[in-house]
Write a protein that binds this DNA or RNA. Sequence first.
DNA 1: CACTAACGTTCGTGGCGCTAACGAAAGTAC
DNA 2: GTACTTTCGTTAGCGCCACGAACGTTAGTG
Lengths: 173, 173
Amino acid sequence: MSSRTDPRTADMADAGHDQATPARLRSLPSRLLSLTALHADRLVSEGLAGADARKWHYAVLVTLREFGPASQAVLSRRTGIYRSDLVAVINELADRGLVERAPDPADRRRNVITMTSQGRRRLGRLDELLATIQDDLLAPLTQPERDQLTRLLTRLLDHHAQAAPQRTGDQPS
Amino acid sequence: MSSRTDPRTADMADAGHDQATPARLRSLPSRLLSLTALHADRLVSEGLAGADARKWHYAVLVTLREFGPASQAVLSRRTGIYRSDLVAVINELADRGLVERAPDPADRRRNVITMTSQGRRRLGRLDELLATIQDDLLAPLTQPERDQLTRLLTRLLDHHAQAAPQRTGDQPS
DNA sequence: CACTAACGTTCGTGGCGCTAACGAAAGTAC
DNA sequence: GTACTTTCGTTAGCGCCACGAACGTTAGTG
């Protein structure tokens, strides 16, 4: 251990703890949330990157499967991705042939986004990938504990969903 | 809801609520974590901003109180703030007279960061502020539930603390 | 017809986690 | 003592993300 540390092995990756974090910080719920979310995001991003995808891609594809073709504005509201950011996401998905962007003849302001059969296949694989990632993320927890965590987080989220919504034209999470 | 079987006619303008998020997304643990963390971070940032502080400030002050004066490198490891970012944080704290930065006579590479009495007083107020923020964040949960959440997150964090650390010179969370 | 609102798009901002590099000052090593 | 290596503080920069402003276009509404 580092009690008798050998500092010469420069790659300090050695023993675990260089220094301790104050208890006050370690038990701060907001901090715990942020750090855990960071790890989660990293796991997801890295996992999906291996499949040439990003989490936004998955969100959009899932939404298309569950609700069918939709305009970008609708997709934005359903996924929580801002309209401005969604443009690039749709571009990427279209470039990969996973969705098609076509002008809506009934309302020429809109684009109708439709999932292709290739997109459906890809989504299937992403489903599995995502599942294993979640499993990896929640590895140390039993199934009841995972459910409990999900319930707790959902309640927090629902509770805080009320207030905020004074927006200008976009929709948050 | 969109019981209207005619999705093309701008059905979203009608009802107050916008659109539903797919179940698959709503129950994704990684997503729940990210969104909850987003809300938490926002609460913390806004709350602290009202007191002319940022979360980094709090982290550093707490660490100084718990372990006493330390070099920036040590503070970096204990708080998880990168050395490069810590520079600005210490500047801000010093500008406000909450800490003092003095060269270490024993090792002239280091700066010794010391909390001032004013810093101690400020930290007291931030403690209270942070407490109310946590309370706000966890409002919908009972005390046992809050404890449970904290435990679950801590376990996730501890578990994922093993792997990652292939660092170059800095220390993450 | 004028007014308003929604849509897709572009550009920009600020914060955050993280890396790279560099001079200065130790800590070894021979 | 000279040479190599490591640590320290600092600066600059990247990439991602949540978010907002503005604009031209198109639809609805009075």
